[in-house]
Write a protein that binds this DNA or RNA. Structure first.
Length: 285
DNA sequence: AGCTCTTCCTGAAAGC
DNA sequence: TGCTTTCAGGAAGAGC
């Protein structure tokens, strides 16, 4: 599942092959992957030059220079959903199933978007609408201060795990890195966020940044479909402490990792290393 | 406003 | 063995 480290790895890998290059054309094999104005996408991409790539949370933003055929600058926005792959390849590479979009580049290469589960999206918007488009998104995990992080979680009653997944607070964490950050900070995923004390908040703020940096250094976690921009696998799956390890021994205390469901998402944790500091009323049982 | 549930989609895994 | 059912999850939108 592409989360911040996977998206960052893809963006870094694509920069050298895309920035400064011109787009020749675009083919939509599965138009349903496109959100918003499909006609605009078909108009804006051909003949545009790619100025630069940017990541915001789990979104990829391709900034396009203004082609002579259009009045304004535009941006291509890509979200990889949970099985999306965005990669450069030679045109001779056979089309894999679920390849939805092909973008032809002046270099002779192709930029392809493949996404078996189709939770991803592709959209072109005028550059002037970019900030409004992302207005709801929370802060970057590497930019948010501890004070701001604490303020956003204060008095919230939802489980801390659920709020880490909420992109409006902090952007970029998904199920894997939320679980890993909570383990590293020794915080139980079901704990209401507002009950975290200052020390727990500091541990979580640090753990979140440390886990994400380590995952970026390892080029992400290849758990299901994720590959880098060159089609290689990430390496962080070998360093996961709790995610996907239900029943296996905790790497710290050797007790079995458990799994519980919070707001429809599985949470992996160690009951011993991540104790409930106070009794939680869950409303279940 | 805050929180939870549902929906979209496919393939792998579990169940019978 | 082979078919059917269940499950996984990001984020938008509905509902409470």
């Amino acid at each position: 599942m592409p989360e911040l480290p996977e998206v960052e790895t893809v963006v870094q890998g694509l920069r050298a092959r895309l920035e400064g290059r011109r787009i020749l054309g675009v083919s939509l094999h599965q138009p349903l992957i496109v959100r918003g104005d499909v006609a605009l996408l078909r108009r804006a991409l051909p003949k545009s030059r790619i100025e630069r790539l940017e990541r915001r949370g789990k979104f990829i933003i391709v900034h396009l220079e203004k082609p002579t055929s259009l009045r304004a600058r535009h941006c291509l926005i890509v979200h990889l959903g949970m099985t999306g792959q965005l990669f450069c390849c030679r045109p001779s590479l056979p089309y894999e199933k679920h390849t939805h979009v092909t973008i032809e580049l002046e270099t002779g290469e192709q930029l392809r978007l493949r996404d078996p589960r189709r939770f991803g999206r592709l959209e072109v918007i005028p550059a002037a609408r970019l900030e409004a488009y992302f207005a709801h998104l929370g802060a970057e995990p590497f930019e948010i201060s501890l004070a701001e992080f604490a303020a956003r979680l204060a008095r919230r009653k939802a489980p801390i795990k659920s709020l880490l997944l909420n992109q409006d607070l902090v952007r970029g964490l998904g199920n894997i890195y939320s679980d890993e950050a909570l383990f590293a900070a020794r915080i139980h995923p079901a704990l209401p966020a507002g009950r975290l004390d200052v020390r727990a908040l500091r541990r979580l703020h640090r753990a979140m940044q440390r886990v994400l940096r380590a995952a970026i250094a390892a080029e992400g976690t290849s758990f299901s479909d994720y590959v880098t921009a060159d089609g290689r696998l990430g390496r962080f799956q070998y360093r996961l402490r709790v995610y996907g390890r239900e029943g296996e021994p905790c790497r710290r205390c050797r007790r079995p990792i458990r799994r519980l469901v919070l707001t429809g998402r599985s949470s992996h944790y160690c009951p011993h290393c991540q104790p409930r500091v106070r009794r939680i009323v869950t409303g279940r049982h």
